[in-house]
Write a protein that binds this DNA or RNA. Structure first.
Lengths: 356, 356
DNA sequence: ACCATCGGATCAAACGTTTGTACGCAGTGG
DNA sequence: CCACTGCGTACAAACGTTTGATCCGATGGT
């Protein structure tokens, strides 16, 4: 590999002069600078960022910790982080924890060793102790998509209460009064928030809640399927269900199909997340969209802001979710399923905003 | 940050001794080693990998270049790469190119600057010139999922011909004779391979090909929808379609639904990739599964093998795809009456086979 | 008593940069 | 003619490691 002193030798100057030339220092006359740069180019010089990082004490690298990069939700976040980081000349090292606590902490120290300038944590289980540990260390970090009550860190999450409100108010407005809710694991804050919002809306409208229509499930299609079967085969059936996430909703859909309950005529269904496949022709799930990509972007921006000029004010953002109405919701007791208003899916409008 | 010399001072030894202690050098007696390690631990020492990388000329970092990390296909590859890299003590820096050539080359030089030990390229458009450039540079790399004819690099791809064969033979075995194919962009090798395999199988079975049932489309649902509409509303309809990827197949499914063509009764449909959502209750797409995660793992293994002990033999792997039969394929004409017409003899040999 | 050996530890160079300081030199104003 | 200024450049230290060479004292053999 050609170094700065190779260039120095070729140009008949000292290494420091070469360094200044390449960094466009005002101490050097333009003539010298361009001459040296030319030589550097000819020699195919590539500066060694490791050495740079060593002397500057800064690596221009961000760490991104996600539980499952194969999951498009985190994939989109990663895309946002990666793109904005790249635009600021930062690289991002990917840490896939597979949801494993132990790996999380291993990664945390690994990243500290590499002297990353900051961390984006998308993996945090609520109140994970290692976040506390991290908070004590020097490395700045920002939480994304989930937040921890225990630490006072910058974060960017979607406003889950607002999302829940959007979903349930949509149902109420359609005329539903028999509304059920299938939540995620009870230790997931965002799920609880959605649930609470649901209760609030129903309270506001003086609508009673039938506790047998409330369930808690894993965030999987499987779990949604089971919960759906239970609720729908009960003695009284709700006319609408709000699921805390799209996977659960899809499970419910499967259950409904199996029981011969038609959607949306006999059951309205709302999900959460707007995973790409909610828009599929045969699915057409009404759901609450999160600006996932944007979350990644903003998280990276926050982190860069903190690393570059220290935290100024509180960096914390609740992003607005958006209701996407498709074909799984209708007024209760509708018989024909063909009379649906189809709101064409907003073509990833959020994505184009900051993409590429 | 506490350095090795801080420890040295605290222990009353020289920095080199500390270094040897931490690296478990046999030159030091066990007593000293453990004593120093203890002090290091108390001080909360974290070794600086940047410095290490500088002196060793090796960074223990791999670069991963993908076009879209939000796409679960690449997400799974990333997961494989990340996990195996991590098991060998390597980190991986994520490069999301958004399919942009320019970004690809920017990333390539950025990664060289960071002195990454190797690259996993999942983004390569067939015969991309920058791969050539890369091939000349020192950095070892391995291609995954797509390969380039022009360079002789290690790669791991799925055997697309075999995949195509599986799909079409499945259709033939069901009794189909009027079979169409919707390929991806014509500069994507894997799509072409699937297509060729398709032709071969049909040839083997002496089944004519109607060229009007052949289309080329982008790898999107949108494009699949258009192609599907064209083919299905033509004067003669195939009884089966093989799509070069699941997104296209889903587009076709949408087209069929719109045209009132029932699947699988009137049209059998096979996709490629087995994206997670092909298994959804309402979709149930028969498709060819790729071991995506494994591809990532093997790619990383290859790369590590090359970086650690230079390439020994040719590292190249064709992974076996697997046919997943769901509900979009059935014997032809299950319900439909005799709309069957004998096809005009297809003109053949538009394109001669290119060798490989 | 001498030399060789050896265990245990230090020295110093090296990795490739950046950057504060100093140096030499030309011009300028007094 | 001196002091000053400004410009262009060089020197050298520093960043945090690793590692070959070296050193020192004790031990053992002859």
């Amino acid at each position: 590999m050609v170094t700065i002193r190779d260039i120095a030798q070729a140009a008949g100057v000292s290494p420091s002069t070469v360094s200044r030339a390449l960094n466009d220092s005002p101490l050097l006359p333009d003539g010298t600078k361009s001459r040296i740069r030319e030589i550097a180019r000819e020699l195919g010089y590539e500066r060694n960022e490791l050495a740079l990082g060593l002397v500057k004490g800064v690596s221009r690298v961000l760490g991104l910790v996600v539980p499952d990069i194969g999951n498009p939700f985190f994939g989109e976040i990663a895309r946002g982080v990666s793109n904005t980081a790249h635009n600021s000349g930062y690289s991002v090292v990917l840490c896939n924890t597979e949801g494993d606590r132990e790996r999380e902490r291993v990664y945390a120290t690994l990243l500290r060793r590499r002297r990353v300038d900051g961390l984006v944590l998308a993996s945090v289980k609520m109140d994970d102790p290692y976040v506390l540990e991290l908070a004590r260390s020097q490395t700045p970090y920002v939480l994304v998509s989930r937040l921890s009550r225990f630490v006072d860190a910058p974060f960017v999450v979607v406003d889950d209460r607002e999302g829940g409100r959007l979903a349930v108010e949509h149902l109420v407005r359609l005329g539903h009064t028999r509304i059920g809710f299938i939540g995620g694991p009870s230790d997931v804050q965002s799920s609880n928030d959605r649930m609470e919002a649901c209760r609030e809306v129903l309270d506001d409208h003086r609508i009673d809640i039938d506790e047998t229509w409330l369930r808690s499930a894993e965030f999987t299609q499987q779990a949604g399927h089971e919960a759906g079967l239970e609720i729908l085969s009960g003695p009284t059936r709700p006319s609408a269900l709000f699921a805390a996430n799209d996977m659960i909703a899809l499970g419910v859909m499967q259950a409904a199909d199996e029981l011969g309950v038609t959607i949306p005529a006999e059951l309205s269904l709302v999900g959460f997340n707007d995973i790409a496949y909610a828009a599929f022709p045969r699915i057409q799930l009404t759901t609450v969209a999160q600006p996932t990509y944007d979350m990644g972007c903003i998280a990276a921006e926050y982190l860069l802001a903190v690393t570059q000029h220290g935290r100024k004010r509180k960096l914390r953002k609740f992003l607005e979710p958006r209701l996407v109405v498709r074909n799984t919701t209708a007024p209760p007791g509708t018989t024909s399923s063909g009379t649906q208003q189809t709101q064409p899916r907003a073509k990833r409008g959020l994505r184009s905003k900051k993409g590429r």
